[in-house]
Simulated scan of single mutants.
Amino acid sequence: MFIDTHLHLVARDRISYPWLKDVPVLDRDWTFEDYEQTAKRIGIDGVLHMEVDCAPEDIVTENVFVGELMARPQSLMRGAISSARPESEDCAAFLDTLDLDIVKGIRRVLHVVPDDLSQGDLFRENVRRIGNKGLPFDICVLQRQIPIAQDLVDACPDTVFVLDHCGVPDIAGDGFADWAKSIAALAERPHVNAKISGITAYAKPDWTLDTLRPYVEHIIKCFGWDRVVWGSDSPVCTLNSSLDQWMAVTRALISGASQSEQAAFAHENAKRIWSI
């Protein structure tokens, strides 16, 4: 059974998502009810909600929304990876208000802001604060920004990090060589983990299992089975596959691993990293 460490839900009646207007295919409500129906069919028995880069004034509302889902009887929801603004003077106070029964981690998307944002002293100080609270920090960068992520990781040695989406490899553009080199360097940092999540979105529409295999195998080779987790990246994965297809290809790619290796990847590492 899998823990999905990367689910996005969209509830436009309660929360504003400014970026969605630029992605019409995703610009609709994506409900937990629809997700749960599929998840229970394909072997997902727990899920973390990943912040959806909502309007800053709605971050608290988004976390409350996740808490409500957690409280439902027999809910698969295990917690929220909350948005935050580490570049803000208000971040420390915001972190102090978090309900840690709901919030299990923090993310700030870095590919939608200037490259130097995460290099600022205040940003790094707040990421260290996040680590001091026992919360991991998800890194969401493009392939070309992986060295920037490495600089942030080096500046915050006591914070646990999780690299989203395998570092967003340019699979469609056959960018394997440069990506693989950057991943190998980042993986040398023992406080960094890697999330194998929804990478079908970065391939061409005619992708196959063998298209994705070298990327998944390289991540596992570099990080090892004790530092990798799985995520759906639903609904973004639907740009180039279905949730069912992404789970099927994942199971095929790890079928040769031992039971203990598969269990670490599927759920044990996630439970440890996010304290769930």
Rank of each mutant, 00 (worst) to 15 (best):
Ile254Glu: 01
Pro18Tyr: 07
Ile146Gly: 00
Ile196Glu: 04
Ala185Trp: 00
His191Tyr: 04
Leu163Ile: 08
Leu163Gly: 03
Trp246Thr: 15
Leu186Trp: 07
Val23His: 06
Gly131Asp: 02
Asp233Asn: 14
Leu163Arg: 04
Arg189Asn: 06
Pro18Gly: 11
Ile171Leu: 08
Gly46Trp: 00
Asp233Gly: 08
Leu253Val: 00
Gln74Arg: 12
Arg251Ile: 09
Thr208Pro: 01
Gln119Ser: 13
Leu152Ala: 08
Leu186Ser: 07
Asp121Met: 12
Arg28Lys: 15
Ile148Thr: 13
Pro114Tyr: 05
Val228Gln: 04
Val25Leu: 13
Val64Leu: 11
Arg14Asp: 10
Ala172His: 08
Glu217Thr: 02
Val112Met: 10
Val60Trp: 03
Lys21Thr: 14
Gly105His: 08
Trp179Pro: 08
Leu239Ile: 14
Ala264Asp: 14
Asn269Val: 15
Leu76Gly: 07
Lys195Asn: 09
Ile139Met: 10
Thr5Pro: 06
Ala39Trp: 10
Pro157Gln: 10
Pro114Lys: 05
Trp207Pro: 02
Ile183Gly: 00
Ser197Trp: 05
Ile220Tyr: 05
Phe176Val: 06
Ser255His: 11
Ala266Ile: 07
Asp226Lys: 11
Val109Cys: 03
Met247Ile: 15
Tyr35Asn: 07
Leu20Ala: 13
His8Ile: 06
Cys166Met: 15
Glu261Thr: 10
Ala187Leu: 06
Ser83Arg: 03
Leu69Lys: 09
Ala184Trp: 01
Ala155Glu: 03
Glu51Ala: 10
Met77Val: 15
Val168Thr: 12
Ala266Tyr: 11
Tyr35Ile: 04
Asp174Met: 10
His6Asn: 12
Val47Cys: 15
Asp164Pro: 09
Ser118Tyr: 07
Leu100Met: 15
Met77Tyr: 04
Glu57Ser: 12
Asp244Tyr: 08
Glu62Ile: 00
Glu33Asn: 11
Asp164Glu: 12
His165Lys: 06
Pro136His: 01
Arg189Leu: 00
Ser242Trp: 02
Gly134Cys: 01
Thr159Asp: 09
Asp4Val: 11
Arg272Ile: 10
Val66Arg: 03
Val162Gly: 03
Val25Ala: 15
Pro24Cys: 08
Pro169Asp: 06
Leu209Phe: 05
Ser83Asn: 06
Arg41Tyr: 05
Glu51Asn: 07
Arg124Gly: 07
Arg108Asp: 00
Ala185Tyr: 02
Lys40Asp: 03
Val236Trp: 09
Ala248Pro: 03
Phe2Glu: 02
Val160Pro: 01
Val23Ser: 03
Asp158Ile: 01
Asp90Gly: 12
Gln119Ala: 14
Thr250Pro: 09
Cys237Phe: 06
Gly67His: 05
Val112Phe: 10
Val168Pro: 00
Leu98Ala: 04
Leu20Asp: 11
Phe176Cys: 04
Val47Gln: 08
Asp116Asn: 11
Gly173Pro: 01
Leu69Ala: 00
Glu33Val: 15
Gly175Tyr: 03
Ser258Cys: 07
Ala92Leu: 14
Phe65Ser: 00
Asp4Trp: 07
Thr97Glu: 13
